[in-house]
Design a protein around this nucleic acid. Structure first.
Length: 182
DNA sequence: GGAACGATCTGC
DNA sequence: CAGATCGTTCCC
């Protein structure tokens, strides 16, 4: 509970998307700072939860602070942070990290590609996050989120941009993507 | 039982 | 800009 930002639980998912910027996503010996997120709300046609609870998205309706990991395009995993109380179905997609720890390991997992964590599927590959982590409690265990100050280099005064979300075809006008400038 | 598609990435 | 590649969903 303490590991996540104050006011994290069951707050407006768009607020959580902003609050997660600067936090650190860590898995084993790899870690990266969250620099891009997107909010997916209940009754949001772009959200996986839009057509109700299914076997695939059930963890999105689970307790906040847990992971929703989905598999898409036949080859990619993406990781979300569930934000609202059980049964609601809202989450924040983590779209990009700034690599902090385990960079050599990330490079090996990414097969030498230069951009280790600059996209939602790249970062899951770099951190070895899979469907096995679906539903995992992100406040404890191997896969977890740490507060910004757990690594040096985050002042809290970074410039944040809010833009439309990426890679979706519905509700494209909603500016629910948060990204650290630079 | 089957078809269509996807919150992506890579390489041509 | 198209192909990779397959789980999930929805419709028959």
């Amino acid at each position: 509970m303490r590991a996540l930002p104050r006011g994290f639980y069951d707050r407006d998912t768009r607020v959580v998307a902003r609050a997660l910027l600067g936090c650190v996503l860590a898995h084993g010996h790899t870690a990266g700072r969250i620099i891009e997120t997107e909010a997916y709300l209940a009754d949001d046609p772009a959200s996986h939860s839009h057509n109700g609870k299914t076997a695939r998205n059930s963890s999105m309706f689970g307790p906040p602070g847990h992971a929703y990991v989905y598999f898409t395009y036949g080859m990619h995993h993406c990781v979300n942070v569930v934000t609202r109380r059980e049964g609601t179905g809202e989450a924040v997609l983590i779209r990009a990290l700034e690599p902090l720890d385990g960079i050599e390991l990330m490079k090996r997992r990414r097969k030498g590609a230069d951009h280790l964590c600059s996209g939602p599927a790249k970062l899951t590959q770099a951190l070895a996050i899979t469907r096995a982590h679906d539903g995992a409690d992100l406040t404890r265990g191997a896969l977890r989120i740490l507060p910004p100050e757990s690594y040096p280099g985050w002042s809290g005064k970074e410039k944040i941009l809010t833009t439309p979300r990426i890679g979706i075809t519905k509700a494209i006008e909603k500016k629910w993507r948060c990204v650290v400038q630079g």
